[in-house]
Write a protein that binds this DNA or RNA. Structure first.
Lengths: 189, 189
DNA sequence: GGTAGTAGCCTAGCCACCCTAGGCAAACCA
DNA sequence: TGGTTTGCCTAGGGTGGCTAGGCTACTACC
């Protein structure tokens, strides 16, 4: 009875890659077991259930994305930082559609608080330092930024922009221009 | 052998309601069959497969939402219309989370072209008439608007805004103010 | 008003996936 | 060297998706 050397880390990584190839909804315990040359029941020694697998993919993705964003942000400020953040975000989502989709699942509060999600929040606020916004405008602006990024990437992926010929890259960069414009001139109450 | 009176329309409606209660991912042919007091195999007489069910929910939702938006837009223009559109969108998403989630599935091009999705596109462009934008700015603005709405609603639902105490309603109305501001003063190249 | 055809349901059965219980052997550790 | 833990196994039950083939109630037409 040779041991296959399965660990939670290896499982998570394989699951993430599988998600990018076939979609999160098709990441199955059985498929992973096959990949590791192991019976599916054996994976429950490492995993509580199938849901844990998706959560782990999500946490991995959050951490990876936070690293990328941090790297992109280094030494930049103002609109430069905004664009770098946005592009890092969008590029990651396009390179890793399955991981990105996994990121959208509902984490329970404790898990979310312990995740790399807090780093995202911090970095987003850091960008806004270049725009001199005070609370509560800052919170509203963070939420609007995040909404725009996620919404655009999400609609782009599900084909929501397909009916118009205009290249999405162009709309993306113009959207960032617009975002920079509102942040610079945030409307007062 | 009494007949249960199953039709595709009744199935779709029941599926949509089920989706709002338990989530689209839990809308199953078996569960629907139970609701109709019928064996699951019988539903394949009315349905090609489980995927068709979700597509039908999506098309129903698109049509319902288009109706709501059209009603909200009647007699309004400018920022008034923008806010009415946005609120109709967000309210629908919150009242019908399952239907809204179903709307995000990837429709194949022909189905999408024949859906109420085109009405949405037309209505969004109609709003922009109040802002005097010409192509290709108009397309970019439509995409940004849609991104913002979808992104906000989506993040709000999955709890992406939970870590900050500020009421999401407030951020929402400020986001609409900001959107109105950029549309009014769309940055030139 | 009988009868052919079809629409609507059924049973049986297959496959994939999720997950639990209980067993056995390899690796580790004293 | 023997005990404990770790990592895998088999067996088996539950749910869901879907196909094939059969029976019955309704419909339409002569």
């Amino acid at each position: 009875m040779a041991r296959a050397g399965v660990t939670v880390e290896r499982l998570t990584l394989a699951a993430a890659e599988l998600a990018d190839e076939v979609g999160v909804e098709n990441v199955t315990v059985a498929a992973l077991a096959r990949q590791f040359g192991v019976k599916d029941a054996s994976l429950y020694f490492h995993l509580k259930n199938a849901h844990e697998l998706r959560v782990r993919i999500a946490l991995l993705a959050l951490a990876e994305l936070a690293d990328r964003v941090a790297a992109a942000l280094a030494g930049r400020a103002g609109k430069d930082a905004l664009v770098a953040f946005a592009n890092a975000y969008r590029d990651y989502a396009r390179e890793h559609p399955g991981r990105y989709a996994a990121m959208q699942i509902d984490l329970d509060p404790e898990t979310a608080a312990a995740s790399a999600g807090v780093r995202h929040a911090e970095m987003t606020r850091a960008i806004l330092r270049g725009y001199r916004l005070s609370e509560p405008d800052q919170t509203d602006a963070v939420r609007m930024m995040h909404s725009t990024f996620h919404g655009f990437v999400s609609l782009e992926k599900t084909g929501g922009f397909r009916h118009t010929p205009r290249p999405t890259d162009d709309s993306w960069s113009r959207t960032l221009d617009a975002l920079d414009a509102v942040l610079t001139n945030w409307p007062s109450r």
